[in-house]
Design a binder for these strands. Sequence first.
DNA 1: AACTCGGGGGT
DNA 2: ACCCCAGAGTT
Length: 397
Amino acid sequence: MEAIHNEEAKSYFSRELLTWYRRIKRDLPWRMNQDPYRVWVSEIMLQQTRVDTVIPYYERFMNKFPTVRALAEAPEEEVLKCWEGLGYYSRARNLQAGAREVVQRYGGIVPDDKAAVAGLKGVGPYTTGAIMSIAFNRPEPAVDGNVMRVLSRYFCLEDDIAKPATRVGIEKLAQSLIPKGAAGDFNQALMELGALVCTPKSPSCLPCPVMEHCSARWAGRETELPIKTKAKPPRPEKRVAVIITGTGAYEGKILVRQRPDTGLLAQMWELPHLLVPKDQEPLIDAADQSESNASTAEAGEWLTRSMEAETGLLIRPDRWLMDADHVFSHIHWKMRIYLADLGLDAIGATGASLAAETAAAYETGSLRSEYRWIGPEDMETLAFPNVFIRILREYWT
DNA sequence: AACTCGGGGGT
DNA sequence: ACCCCAGAGTT
């Protein structure tokens, strides 16, 4: 990071950007006032998530949990349900943990104190600066991807913005640019410019309020900057999921389970599924939509054995239903979904009259606690990842 | 420093 | 297809 920047270019940038922002800023729900709780919730939702995606979630969330105390006192599952589909679900849990901490330690008032805010769960360097500047107008930098892009271009910085050290350097630069008494507006102006004008692919330089002194523009390098190392592609995982239909008392219901409370999609509900080992992928791929051939039967047998070994459920695959792909930032699920029922014959039931009894035994006895029978109406209370929402919607229609 | 953690929109 | 997004936590 260069130690010296042109002071003239810097003061011009700060002045023109702030003026521009105050003229054109968007009317967003979290800009209604500077309530620190509203700012906090918005900043957590906006982490790695676009404004247009956040808006409806934000409205629902603030309606349901209008105050720090309301959020702190809510059941965790309701918070997770309200976050359903937004992704990065630990944000929701951390936000509520933070709300509970604010209630216990600060009497329900978000403290006007950098160290205290930075200590809240889920609040890192960016969010600390955003809350301190927007809610309290403190001169703290709030450096996100937009800001790194804008400043990399304006000052023609060639540091790799994927490296943490680069963000630290840009934070110092960003702080030095904050106009006196206008931290909140200026930080939002930087992000507004990045979102609306100085966009990643094809920046709109002509309407840009600071084009005149933009180093990258003068060098004709605005599309080359910022420099960022490429992310690794997500690793592929072949998975087989099953829609297990109930019988007897559970007629019309299917079996779902809740994920562990840490890790990927923690505490979300899902269809039972398992990872297909690399050497078994050909077997699963060979089974296709064709009614009943040898390869389909083989795949079904493999599924039955593997499901019992991993989940304790003795299932009886019926037929292939659909395939579904789901891409996380680090994993690519290639899912094959089968219809099945519980292998009642195999566990001793000889007639349909025993079906309900056997199924009940699954619920009270050998059915592990994370499993539940649900109908379509239960989708309104349990939180599912989008991939399973899509599959179940398809199944029930 | 590298990896984990969702999901969708823009190009 | 690929990139990126008002990033943070863990290892």
